[in-house]
Design a binder for these strands. Structure first.
Lengths: 345, 345
DNA sequence: ATGAAAGCGCTAACAC
DNA sequence: GTGTTAGCGCTTTCAT
């Protein structure tokens, strides 16, 4: 028959209950909660005991009205990309160590949803936000950054003002791929990239990879044979594009694909049309995602160190929450995961 | 030079600002916000105009202390499974229509993280929670359900009390697969399932699929040849298991895999060992996930209607939030997506 | 139909 | 070192 203490949900233990149980003031409890100065070890222990005994958990909602919520929000454009789980894992690890919780929003590839999600996270009182490969403009990002600490992953903004960017060095990654293929004797190397429709497409990672590809081809004295095919995000159309690419008379001896998804698809289509890989076509991808390791795929691929990206973003965000305001542009070096999807020319 | 109104973040427009601008009381604004009774159309329009003009957005944190937050939380064990995006999409669609936002938490396959995420979502004042394939026990689920409206997807709890379950009819799906293979002339049909370590493994979807498989084999008079191989979640170990399965003298003519991931891996290993598919081995998977449609895979697979599952769960949750308390056990019928990974015996 | 006012559970001045 | 108390922005009786 125990009386329900009042609260948001009936039966919820509040800071007042803890204070009463420990025989101290609510301020004291609050201080213990926040590891603030000015609490004796004895009182502290007392409070901790009561918290444990009552199973008290502070209401994040109430906290959100005055101070920190110890929650950070992550917004993903969509969750199809297999490199996202590692990014999230990197973020969670870094945040979890500092007692922060991570909540994720999915943009479903819709710009309006993406923005309403950001609003919603801010309205929730989240302490900071991490965006992964956002489609919005630099001005929009700046506007959000004025409202909350913000870090952006996989978005090559040339000079952010009020937020930080964390990227893999996509140009360097692409350069490594070309160098590897050139070393294997290839000179006719094409790149399959992504057709980005957005207005602010210049910030997309695929563009940075294209630049790295072109630069590397130039460095190897291979400008004339350099060519970039930008393929659509629509699967059926893309497969048609790939088929015609594969059956064209001027098919190159090697292809660099901007993403593993495209590379794996290309390999499947090539094999099913009777081609022998890698002898007839070398393929290298980007992301070093789980499917790259599948039998029969064994895709050589650039590893972005997704976990590292997530970790760096989280660290940057936490320092921003702690008060830093100068913008940071972090760039992580990728590595090449060697497998058997490419061979000598 | 506009003065910063006080607020959680400086510059934030509050309900008070709106009230002042519209020349009404905060109570009136609040009522308009919640579509409550007792506001004249004129006042209502007035308030709406001010809200629009000032760009006001209610603070979810403040709302969480008294009423609804119009946010629901979704907890995923991990995000590797390719059928999850559709589940989320189904949830988001159904929730978005009612003005609810969806925030996601990732359990990283750690039970403690999973539970602390649930706590955190409750602490945020979320209006309800949806769990996807949770690993926790029925008692734990009941305990959470006492704290907040709860719906569970892909978890076969025989008789939930305080929460709802939404599942695909996994037994029926497995039955369809076997029936399809039997109709194609197969009689030696094995099943590759998942080795579940948990204590409460009986609620795992793979178990329900195993039951359906056994039942169907019985119905076809094929009990003697029925056999289930439970393979590990560890990729390298699993591939070794698959290799020995493929090279065994008593290899069946057809295999039903509990998930597309396993099926695709099996196909890759079989092909790379020189087998000709589907003539030497028919394979059918479960999930009808994107990779199932890849060239060279073309996997016949059971479609769970992931979007439908998400939608049903969201609908159930909203009705629970609206006050329903009797438990619901929803079961959706799966369908079979026919492709070329299986053929005649 | 409208508004005044009392909280919700917490944090952070400020007083002692 | 500890307690008192005034809010944070909202919802929700309860008067008017």
């Amino acid at each position: 028959m125990n009386e329900q203490p009042r609260g948001t949900r009936p039966g919820r233990i509040t800071i007042r209950d803890v204070a009463a149980d420990a025989g101290v003031s609510v301020a004291a409890v609050s201080k213990v909660l926040r590891n603030a100065y000015g609490v004796s070890p004895a009182l502290r222990q007392n409070v901790l005991t009561s918290i444990e005994k009552l199973g008290y958990r502070p209401s994040t909602a109430a906290r959100g009205m005055r101070g920190r919520t110890f929650t950070i929000g992550v917004v993903l454009v969509e969750m199809g990309n297999p490199f996202l789980p590692d990014v999230i894992a990197g973020i969670s690890d870094a945040c979890g160590a500092d007692g922060y919780k991570v909540l994720i929003g999915l943009g479903q590839a819709q710009l309006t949803l993406e923005e309403s999600l950001l609003d919603s996270m801010i309205d929730h009182g989240m302490d900071g936000l991490i965006l992964v490969a956002p489609r919005m403009s630099g001005e929009t990002l700046e506007a959000y950054a004025r409202q909350t600490p913000l870090v952006v992953i996989a978005h090559h903004e040339p000079s952010p003002n009020a937020y930080d960017t964390v990227n893999s060095d996509d140009a360097a990654g692409a350069h490594m791929v070309v160098a590897e293929l050139v070393a294997a004797g290839h000179s006719d190397i094409a790149m399959i990239s992504l057709l980005v429709a957005d207005d602010n497409s210049q910030t997309h990672v695929s563009v940075a990879r294209e630049k790295g590809y072109l630069k590397a081809m130039g460095d190897a004295g291979l400008e004339p044979s350099a060519r970039i095919l930008r393929m659509t995000g629509d699967k059926d159309l893309r497969q048609a594009q790939m088929r015609s690419f594969l059956s064209a008379p001027d098919r190159p001896t090697a292809v660099f694909c901007w993403s593993d998804l495209f590379a794996i698809e290309l390999i499947g289509l090539a094999r099913s049309s009777g081609m022998n890989l890698p002898s007839e076509l070398s393929v290298i991808g980007y992301d070093n995602s789980p499917p790259a390791t599948m039998p029969l795929i064994e895709l050589t691929s650039v590893d972005q160190n997704a976990r590292g990206l997530g970790g760096a973003a989280a660290t940057a965000l936490l320092s921003r929450i702690a008060g830093r305001t100068n913008p940071q542009r972090l760039m992580l070096k990728p590595t090449l995961a060697h497998r058997t999807s490419h061979g000598p020319a």
